[in-house]
Design a protein around this nucleic acid. Sequence first.
DNA 1: AAGGAATGCAACCGCCATAAA
DNA 2: GTTTATGGCGGTTGCATTCCT
Length: 344
Amino acid sequence: MGRAPCCDKANVKKGPWSPEEDAKLKSYIEQDGTGGNWIALPQKIGLKRCGKSCRLRWLNYLRPNIKHGGFSEEEDNIICSLYISIGSRWSIIAAQLPGRTDNDIKNYWNTRLKKKLLGKQRKEQQARRSSGLKQEMKRGNGNPMVPADNNNQNPYWPELPVLDPIPYSNQEPHFNDHASIRKLLIKLGGRFSDDDQVNYKAINPQFPLDVSYTQQLYDDQSINISSSASMEEALNNTDAQFAQTQYNKDGTAGLQLLQGQSSFPAGFEQMVSSNPPRLDGLEFLLGEDVVSNRIRTSYGTESMIDCGEMTSLICPPDASNCEGIQQRLLQECPYVELRYPGPL
DNA sequence: AAGGAATGCAACCGCCATAAA
DNA sequence: GTTTATGGCGGTTGCATTCCT
């Protein structure tokens, strides 16, 4: 048995809103509010629209202080950073960007950011390939794909396999899922722009307290915003912008923030880990052999963390203190068992 | 100039969580 | 405890516009 429809589908208007409809809805809400019932609202004001449609129209378009288009580099960075951490939780991401709606961000991501990113990734791959080629030529190794030796910077954390260049076209099967994009972002070091550090405060001095929009969210999640006093410190900690994601056996991921390395408010972790982002089909970027080297955790159940991903996430390729970070990880997550992949 | 392809964005759909009855 | 109604969200679609050949 299906659910009763929220409105009489036959008698509601669909499609673009007319200026008259907008005006009606806007003036009513500004004067009387929604009355706590979107479904009843259209009848009250004589609109032949579904209540849900009214709600959407208000939230995405008519609401005061809505910004459309013109995303800045900083906003790009925030979106990418949050996407790494929590996936396609657009409403949460939108809550950190005042004046932006989840729909806007979602559209922006799907139509532009993703492509921008793919272009960047392609560039990096080419650069990596050519520099690798040069090095191998110097060493006289005939096959650039086979390392001349295993004495790379960190014997425990092997270089990820160099990917074949991906043609930049609209047919990119590898990147059709969010998880793959997340992976890519992480591989890129978690930072979208080469030049700009993520600076949340530059965007929103009240970060993360866009209270008008997020208060209910935090309330709902039983999160005490005032407890995020450490946010200020976290924001000043330029070392650590990214959360560490734990991938569970069932394909979900939980968020684990390294102490002192979080750019996210206290409770944020709780908020997203209670309803972790979905991750599917992650293997293509790292290869099966790397993926098979896993970390066992216990968030109640045995969870699997992709070592390669963890490496790139918590140990940037040029990190000299990788071991320290690993130790820190073990301190923070004593239940984590690291199994280092052997030399390739 | 015309037609097809690509892009951007508003709006819809369907599912899930939760409050109310 | 169960059912129902509603709000909220993410994914997807469809259309208008822009770009390219």
